[in-house]
């Protein structure tokens, strides 16, 4: 029999070890990609932790023939445009659903929520044929249009929550002071809900930036986004892992930085379907 104090110590030790294992499980793939991106083409096939780091991979992926810079540009253009269209439309709709009482309001809201769950393949089939016919295939605009199909419903859902959380007394006070509804919206409500708008914008940006399915179908060569673009980093024997890892860093770092800003809202955002 172990004595109780020793047993408690062992228990605590086991708990700490298990927690360290969790940290390893969560972080290790990120660490390993980061290390691979700094390795040369020999070291990348070894699991040694000590090697001569190099930034060559980043130089290579931004020069001919991979030219990742153009993919970064397309991804940024598509993601920013998607956010710029999504947020004003979603905020306006979410405000009305939160603050107005009218017939069919709840039905409308549920209908918007349900559109969130329409699978992307169903959206892709008609748009693929349509874009082929009107020559929009392989353009950033085609991607922006289809990305709105998932960013807008989610953003309305999320922003409604933020509007609902604002006490209406502030708006009423402004009303009594003689402001009309549009003035109240512009000078009172929107500034107060700004944190929610920024959080929703970050979620929309991340989902557009990481999107793969539509980008794979609707682009060919001119408007490849980053997630599809890094697939081209292959040699005769399969992926060039060290360069692919460097490309992966370019995809990943902006998103990891952004997730820090939305940390507190992360669970809430996923629950309303922010990422597919």
């Amino acid at each position: 029999m172990l004595n109780p104090i020793l047993r408690k110590r062992l228990g605590q030790g086991a708990e700490i070890l298990a927690t360290l294992a969790v940290i390893f499980f969560v972080l290790f793939p990120l660490v390993w990609i980061t290390l691979a991106s700094l390795k040369n083409q020999v070291d990348v096939y070894s699991t040694r932790l000590f090697f001569q780091p190099t930034l060559d991979n980043f130089r290579i992926i931004f020069s001919d023939p991979i030219l990742l810079g153009s993919k970064v540009w397309v991804s940024a253009l598509v993601s920013f445009t998607t956010v710029a269209v999504t947020i004003p439309l979603a905020a306006a709709a979410a405000y009305v659903i939160s603050r107005h009482q009218f017939r069919g309001r709840d039905t409308l809201f549920v209908a918007i929520l349900v559109t969130q769950f329409v699978p992307a393949v169903v959206v892709a089939i008609p748009f693929f044929t349509l874009f082929r016919n009107i020559g929009l295939i392989d353009t950033p605009w085609a991607l922006v249009i289809v990305y709105l199909s998932f960013t807008l419903p989610y953003a309305i859902w999320m922003l409604r929550g933020f509007f609902d959380a604002l006490p209406v007394e502030v708006e009423e006070a402004a009303y009594i002071d003689g402001c009309n509804e549009l003035q109240i919206l512009r000078y009172v409500t929107v500034p107060l809900v700004m944190p929610g708008i920024l959080v929703s914008a970050v979620f929309a940006f991340i989902s557009a930036w990481n999107e793969f399915f539509f980008a794979l179908i609707l682009t060919r060569s001119n408007s490849l986004t980053l997630p599809v673009g890094i697939m081209t980093i292959t040699g005769v024997r399969g992926p060039m892992w060290e360069q692919l890892a460097a490309g992966g860093m370019i995809v990943m770092i902006p998103i990891l930085v952004m997730s820090l800003f939305i940390r507190r809202y992360f669970v809430q955002g996923i629950t309303v379907g922010a990422f597919k």
Binding site: P29, I33, F212, I230, L256, S259, R263, F275
Partner: peptide
């Protein structure tokens, strides 16, 4: 929160690697 935010494409490549 970090792993979830990683692009699925990258999840695929890193686990394959």
């Amino acid at each position: 929160i970090f792993p979830f935010a990683v692009a699925p494409v990258l999840k695929g490549f890193s686990w394959r690697f």
